[in-house]
Nucleic acid binder design. Structure first.
Lengths: 356, 356
DNA sequence: TTCCGTTGGACAAGCGCTTGATCATCGGCC
DNA sequence: GGCCGATGATCAAGCGCTTGTCCAACGGAA
């Protein structure tokens, strides 16, 4: 009855690049493959003699058995794999999100794979490949360029998808950080230092996070009884070059600000460079604080004051919510992460305004 | 004969989160599933009437058919997926490697997935999961902490693996950049500016690239007829903190160097910060050049001279070599990427030594 | 001794796709 | 008119794993 198994066991793994099969383990332990499967998966509905269990486990270990993910995925129609799409690995902001997602996925027994997709078209095709192709059970999308439009498939009700840090029309749930509050904290820090002429390096108009940060900026100014001057709000792309140029524009104003709140730490790095290039002393003549913290902040000159946001927790929470969706539970359409509160990390780039 | 197909076509995709099946497309086009498969894969051994082909293609498009990767992977025993393991997405150096690998993979019709694995243990388990589990056809490993030891499975002849930028004992092929030459170019740049007291921020002793860069440093000094002073070689981990501390040690020498070649741009950022913290002017009192270029280099103060290395091409080449291995062809054990040559990108951090 | 409930496993179908083998149909040729 | 080679598809097995079902053997109770 088991002859096919035994026969197979005599020929140990002809294929290269892949592990030994259930059949091989079964042959080694002299049981049926299904028994091996049940034992290795800890199937509660299985009753085996302890000795058999040991034999199977030993055989699996001896052969270095690793189940074939494709076969398992096919049979189970799930893969215990989650995907995370990011626009670029280069952006330091994603570091913590990735680590948080990875941590939550691992804790739930899932594998996390990353895919880099710069534009919406790429996100669309990656989404199709991954979700429709059955490669992953769910997808986290952290695309900066993702605006109001979304991949067709996503909108067509093919879900198991969560958007990170963007609110999108439609049924795709998203989880966002409390950008308003974070930016407000930054402005409050500047106000507390005595600044009254505070400018904002705002992000691109179409980006949701940029909008939220800008509105946090305005609100905080109003709350402090300060005017929101039109010229003090400069749009800047979320990269060094954007920050550099926007800063130059601010410095050309006849009445310069004494402090700048940047919506992006990357843009702030560019802005800092613009100050050095034009001989503007930071924080002597101008204070600067940036949204999001990163290792490099303390190694810049001057070290950069930042607004720390719970990005690790954002990645974790998004992953946990995704797992809820996968398990068929409903979750709110938009959730805002409030718990670890935004926190200003004061460094050398912020100081009281010049006596002037 | 086709009744099962038609029956299935009446129930359009009961499963959620996955696409329509071959069966559904076959039902829609009123042909056998195998015919659909052949047409969609452009099987040269298939002969179909143009009208049928059109019907099938239209049906697939109408249903938004995406083949199930697990089923295909199971049948084909390959997945058209490549994995790239990196220690951390945070490291700016990996950005270009990732882009290069992604580009070469895409050009060959492969999907690239990234996995973050910090230590050797994690690399080992990720390797098992991915290769033995049949999730990927091949793996690129760009682990910084990977030293002389490698995952067991890799060493056990389970290949389809390429190591990036580390030479490892054993049969795993690796492809490396020309670190010696790159570092030599940096030193030559400093020598040409008139420096004679040149120090090196060397990387960790156990890391292969660090060793190669250091030997390039020494050779270049010898070639220039300059002495290699013991104290001028300071080990520093490849991060900001490591560069910061190593730089402080250099600055405490009674006879300070007038120039520093850093083995890592990240460490150089830390080193620059150390100079600012101790009031050492760069490049007034000390010139600095860093190995590897990155966007941030031109936004630092002063902007940082760097040694550009062909990292994009490294990622591309490694991927192409991996595909060779997958296709069963032999490749050399260690290959050094020479073609786009290392190039010094001079910026403000390097200048002639002080008149002193 | 006989019957029956447990225990410890084996059996087989099926997940969606690929592919070598097979087969019906049809026009052309002698 | 019968045979044959193309043509244009269908059939069926199998990839490795999971899981509902089934079955042999065994021990205890009547």
């Amino acid at each position: 009855m088991l002859d096919h198994v035994v026969a197979n066991a005599k020929r140990p793994s002809a294929r290269v690049g892949q592990g030994s099969s259930l059949l091989a383990v079964a042959g080694e332990a002299r049981v049926h493959p299904s028994t091996v499967s049940r034992i290795l998966r800890d199937d509660p509905a299985v009753r085996v003699r302890p000795a058999t269990r040991q034999r199977v486990i030993a055989a699996a270990a001896a052969l270095g058995y690793v189940p074939n993910a494709n076969a398992r995925g096919l049979a189970l129609r799930r893969t215990t794999t989650l995907g995370l799409i990011i626009p670029s690995t280069a952006n330091i902001v994603y570091e913590q999100i990735i680590k948080g997602a990875e941590s939550a996925a691992r804790a739930a027994g899932y594998v996390l794979v990353l895919a880099e997709s710069a534009d919406v078209g790429q996100v669309d095709s990656a989404h199709r490949e991954l979700i429709l192709g059955g490669r992953v059970d769910g997808l986290l999308i952290a695309s900066g360029t993702l605006r109001e439009s979304l991949p067709r498939a996503v909108l067509n009700g093919v879900n198991n998808t969560i958007i990170l840090n963007r609110r999108i029309r439609g049924s795709v749930p998203s989880i966002i950080e409390d950008d308003e509050r974070g930016m407000a904290r930054g402005v409050e820090h500047l106000v507390a230092l005595g600044h009254t002429r505070i400018a904002c390096l705002a992000g691109p108009e179409e980006v949701d996070t940029a909008t939220r940060r800008l509105s946090g900026f305005k609100e905080a100014l109003r709350a402090a009884g300060l005017p929101v001057s039109r010229g003090y709000i400069q749009r800047a792309s979320f990269d060094e070059a954007g920050g550099y140029e926007a800063m130059l524009r601010l410095l050309q104003l006849e009445r310069r600000p004494t402090a700048v709140a940047a919506s992006s730490i990357v843009a702030a790095i560019g802005a800092l460079a613009a100050c050095h290039a034009t001989g503007v002393s930071v924080p002597g003549e101008l204070s600067m604080i940036a949204f999001h913290d990163a290792t490099i902040a303390q190694y810049l000159t001057p070290s950069l004051s930042t607004i720390w946001m719970p990005l690790f927790e954002l990645g974790e929470m998004a992953t946990r919510q995704l797992l809820e969706v996968i398990d068929g539970r409903d979750i709110p359409s938009v959730q805002r992460l409030q718990d670890p509160e935004p926190r200003v990390i004061p460094r050398a780039s912020t100081a009281p305004p010049p006596a002037d």
